[in-house]
């Protein structure tokens, strides 16, 4: 069974069509890059998979079932903007996650926070944007999910932390779990990707294994992307 199946998905906001007949599927055990320019429809697609928006038409299946309460239990989602109450201390946010998700590993979260020199007694308001992003990512990666969906996880963090985050992703996802990473910082992450999905103007224009694509085009994923989407 496919981990995720997206079938003929359309999404419009009023007259504006954001996603046009999007179909693809993902199996477990892979790291997939969802790559596209700003406004290509990446975040809309991700919100639909997380059942935060309703499709105009088409369907999304996770482990063979339509998205809903069950799929939320197995998807760990890092949104592009934080939804946490910033008045909370990190330790309170940990409690909150523990309450919400059966698969949350508190020990792991505390260990990762310590590695990143983050103080769990600090309030989120007192932290920089980059630090808040790290906290959020740690929480998301500390769940034992089937599918991790990370919307722009590298945007606000410095290059050293970026490496640490990539390490964290590599060493923390379960054997059969998959990770979808949406980003436009391709050169930083292309080494860890199994597959890429290129999305442009609401359509999937390419889905391929990364090494196959490099071999075929004799170029890096970053170069191929730039060539394809030249303005």
């Amino acid at each position: 069974m496919e981990l995720l199946e997206v079938k003929h998905l359309n999404k419009s906001f009023g007259k504006k069509q954001i996603l046009k007949d999007v179909s693809f599927s993902l199996t477990g055990g892979k790291i997939i890059g969802l790559l596209g320019k700003n406004g290509a429809g990446k975040s809309t697609l991700i919100k639909l998979i997380n059942d935060l928006l309703t499709p105009t038409s088409g369907e999304i299946l996770v482990n063979g079932k339509k998205v809903g309460i069950e799929s939320k239990k197995v998807i760990s989602y890092l949104p592009e903007r934080t939804y946490l109450n910033k008045q909370m201390k990190v330790s309170e946010v940990i409690e909150y996650f523990k309450d919400f998700y059966d698969d949350f590993d508190e020990k792991k979260a505390k260990r990762l926070l310590k590695d990143l020199d983050l103080d769990i007694e600090e309030r989120l308001t007192k932290m920089s944007k980059g630090m808040q992003e790290k906290v959020q990512l740690v929480l998301v990666m500390s769940r034992e999910a089937d599918l991790y969906i990370l919307d722009e996880p590298l945007g606000g963090v410095d290059p050293a932390t970026r490496d640490y985050i990539l390490d964290t992703i590599l060493s923390n996802f379960k054997e059969n779990a998959s990770v979808v990473i949406s980003t436009h910082l391709i050169s930083d992450i292309e080494r860890i990707l199994d597959e890429v999905i290129f999305i442009d103007k609401g359509k999937i224009i390419l889905q391929s294994g990364t090494d196959e694509l490099r071999e075929k085009e004799n170029a890096s994923i970053d170069d191929i992307f730039r060539r394809m989407f030249k303005c």
């Binding site: 390490d167 590599l170 080494r191 860890i192 990707l193 090494d211």
Partner: peptide, 17 residues
């Protein structure tokens, strides 16, 4: 495979290959 993947900072599937 996993230890190699983390050392090289590459995907475990690529390492496996």
């Amino acid at each position: 495979v996993r230890e190699f993947a983390v050392t090289f900072k590459v995907n475990p599937n690529t390492m496996q290959k």
